[in-house]
Nucleic acid binder design. Structure first.
Lengths: 215, 215
DNA sequence: AGCGAGGTACACCGATCGGTATAGTCATGG
DNA sequence: CCATGACTATACCGATCGGTGTACCTCGCT
């Protein structure tokens, strides 16, 4: 129950998954060959195919594993933030920012993968969609906690803000995306009705916006 | 003046560009070979290479041509909408929605291309970034017209909303993304401040308070 | 008349793609 | 004791990748 729901991969499979995660995210699905993954993992192609069967299935497992990590981080941070809507929203955007900074600025892995998979029936597509809907659920919960008159619509707008921040951080087109998204989100969800915001004095919890400036 | 500013491609080059545009967008950069593009264009590979030199350069021309179409549509619609901030914002989101519907739901071609190009020095990356900054400029213009106290920050938030709507329309994770984005954008830009002069109304500090960002 | 630009048709290149096959090593546990 | 599972090593497969070379054709323009 309280244990990790991680699949019990063999050591070889695990290092393949790690290598695939790095390479797929950094270079793209089609740009990375199974040979390169196996080499990076310190494993033969045979092992890779014994564990995953095909490149397609490896792609799905890569996304699934990444999604698990992502959700674990978010739920942890949200729960630690307390029950308040503003607290949760702030924690959520801070976690996204932190994640993005740590992963390197290649944007959202789900969106990127979706862009490379043209087959609508590919299981990876469903995985991506499911994740985005889960995110929407998170925002809806926050909107409801805030008592926003139209929680569904507000949640959707905040989800779009978040999505935009994620991919814009990836392109590096402009700076301070998470801060801007968070501020707007707080305004949409916290400020849409007569209520005092906690210390409306800038510095909205995003910590020092110590964004990795190098672009 | 009313003439197209399109580069004077040869007929062969033009059909290659058309074919490339469809195939690259639908299937992805790496998934489409030059052979397939030439075939679709009704042209030999030789012609393709005589006109574009390499696949990389064809990719750049594909994005550049698409960007030209996109900007032409937007500027036309915005100018036709009149000088008001709300009118322009509405026209902009409507145009995006219309474009996305017409192109098929594969999301933003620029973002998708960016996801597939790992080399930061690739000229296509600069093209993508430039387009996103141009979009931000559009939104800033609107924010300034609306007399928002912190136009830069508000514009960034609206740009993120728009970005999120574009890619979310692509994933198809949820419905009504353009409507939701537009509504929130209007709220952020049109409704977040005193209709008239930017007085020092207390509540304004809550959200986009500090413009900050743009260093 | 002639020439160059824009083509077609097609053969060819080395490299890499995803995926398979065969053979053998090593550790664990019933 | 020995069978099974996890792995290495290596060779191989057909297909496709981006890209080049050669030869020939056919316009429009001077």
């Amino acid at each position: 129950m309280l244990v990790e729901t991680e699949i019990d991969w063999t050591p070889g499979a695990r290092s393949v998954l790690d290598a695939a995660s790095e390479l797929f995210y950094a270079r793209g699905l089609h740009a990375v060959g199974v040979e390169a993954i196996a080499e990076r993992a310190g494993v033969t192609k045979k092992t890779l195919y014994d564990r995953f069967g095909s490149k397609d299935r490896l792609v799905v497992e890569y996304l699934a594993a990444r999604d698990r990590r992502w959700r674990a981080l978010l739920t942890e941070r949200i729960e630690a933030a307390g029950p308040g809507a503003e607290q949760r929203l702030t924690a959520l955007f801070a976690a996204s920012h932190e994640w993005s900074r740590a992963e390197g600025s290649r944007g959202c892995a789900m969106v990127n993968a979706h862009a490379e998979i043209d087959d609508p029936a590919h299981p990876a597509r469903a995985l991506v969609v499911e994740q985005k809907r889960w995110m929407l659920g998170l925002f809806r919960d926050v909107a409801e906690r805030a008592g926003v008159p139209a929680p569904h619509g507000a949640a959707k707008a905040v989800a779009l803000l978040h999505e935009g921040a994620l991919v814009s951080y990836g392109t590096g087109a402009f700076e301070g995306v998470f801060e801007a998204a968070q501020e707007a989100a707080l305004l949409l969800i916290g400020g849409a009705r007569p209520r005092r915001l906690p210390s409306s004095d800038g510095r909205t919890g995003a910590g020092a916006g110590r964004d990795g400036g190098a672009r």
